[in-house]
Write a protein that binds this DNA or RNA. Structure first.
Lengths: 145, 145
DNA sequence: TTCTTTGCAGATAAAACACTCTTAAAAGCG
DNA sequence: CGCTTTTAAGAGTGTTTTATCTGCAAAGAA
């Protein structure tokens, strides 16, 4: 069950890593993140740019520059990140991919899926980055644990 | 939230359509299915071939041939279809895509995701094609409702 | 100022996924 | 048998996602 794209996977991993590093340094460089998490520097740069443009992060150029949270991670919900990286309709899609599906013209799985989707959305809406970030060891965010 | 690939979307739509057509004729031709559901004939053929090879369907060539359920749709669970078309590890993946994630080396989201995933699996495991198929109008399975 | 370090923006390349085509094989019908 | 209808199998094409490269702009330090 691949729910998230690579962009979201990498973005979340980077943000969770930052939650744990937060107190050590103001700005974290993308190079560091990419090396620590075994994620392509180029690709990660793009993803974090998107999060910066969405005002979840701030960036600073030059030596000792990098990125930092603009909003405290206690106030960033998983759904906020996911909606930026996957699109705002992330929690509103038909299981069968039918564009016309909705309350007016439900597909056979509409009610079934609506319930599951609602519960999932609820969890993502109420779980913050901070909450998740303090859950585990940093190394568990790496590719090879 | 794109949970299913196009293959699964198309496959499920075809099977749900068949549930409703089941009593009318023994075999349904893939050509008919593709036309009724606005799905590419070539692509649908491949998908249904896979389901036939997985012993969920039987096929018959020649005039008035087509495909039919091998197992009654009351006994085919949504998870059966999905596991064939998406792979058997469908309900066992890490949210962050980390290959090493598991009980031994959980990623920060492991517990969180495990619960959601479990509930989802439970629903897919206990809901049959027959149950879903009788839910709605056939036309709601078409692309343009 | 000049050099180094860092992120930004747009272009390009590779890989995965979705879809199409062609040929073959099976089954029925005259 | 020869012809038509239908699925099977494998190769080929197109599109989207993922990843990489190149040039540039901002910021700090010598």
């Amino acid at each position: 069950m691949k729910v998230l794209s690579k962009s979201s996977e990498y973005g979340l991993r980077a943000l969770l890593y930052m939650v744990r590093k937060q107190n050590e340094q103001e700005y974290v460089s993308i190079r560091d993140l990419s090396e620590q998490l075994d994620i392509s520097f180029y690709f990660l740069t793009k993803i974090l740019q998107t999060l910066t443009q969405a005002n979840l992060l701030v960036s600073y150029r030059g030596p000792n520059g990098g990125i930092a949270f603009k909003v405290p991670p206690e106030k960033i919900m998983l759904s906020d990140v996911v909606r930026v990286l996957e699109g705002s309709d992330f929690f509103d899609k038909c299981l069968l991919g039918l564009p016309g599906c909705g309350e007016m013209a439900p597909c056979p799985m509409h009610e079934f899926w609506k319930e599951i989707k609602g519960a999932l959305k609820q969890e993502f809406d109420t779980t913050s980055l901070a909450e998740m970030g303090h859950n585990a060891q940093i190394r568990s965010l790496r590719l090879i644990p």
